[in-house]
Amino acid sequence: MSGANQRALVLLVAGFTIWSVGFVALYALQALGCAFGWPQHRAILIGAYVVSLLPLIWLAMMKTVREGEPATSLSVAALWANRAALASGVLVFLPVTFVSACI
């Protein structure tokens, strides 16, 4: 497998891997906050929401091919997958801003 292919394959799953980590982290913060009665629970959740979106934004903006290389099917698919991961992050994590955390 060529280097460009490998890079594209890693990029293809990078966005959604970060999304998964963010998903688990938010689920854990929600549960821990309720269990220990954190006073700034909501603020922590919203903070984690923003933090988890930063790498997703970076990936979605990133070029999936190096300068001077032609775009391949794989690099285009990777670009779309990373944009989809960003959209999934924005939408799936959005409830932290308004939904009851512990009832």
Binding site: V13, S20, F23, S73, L74, A81, A84, V92
Partner: peptide, 18 residues
Amino acid sequence: GYRSIIAAIVAMGFLSFG
């Protein structure tokens, strides 16, 4: 839509764990 289907499969694979 070969390329968008690849992206869709990857998205599905991950989302289905959530």
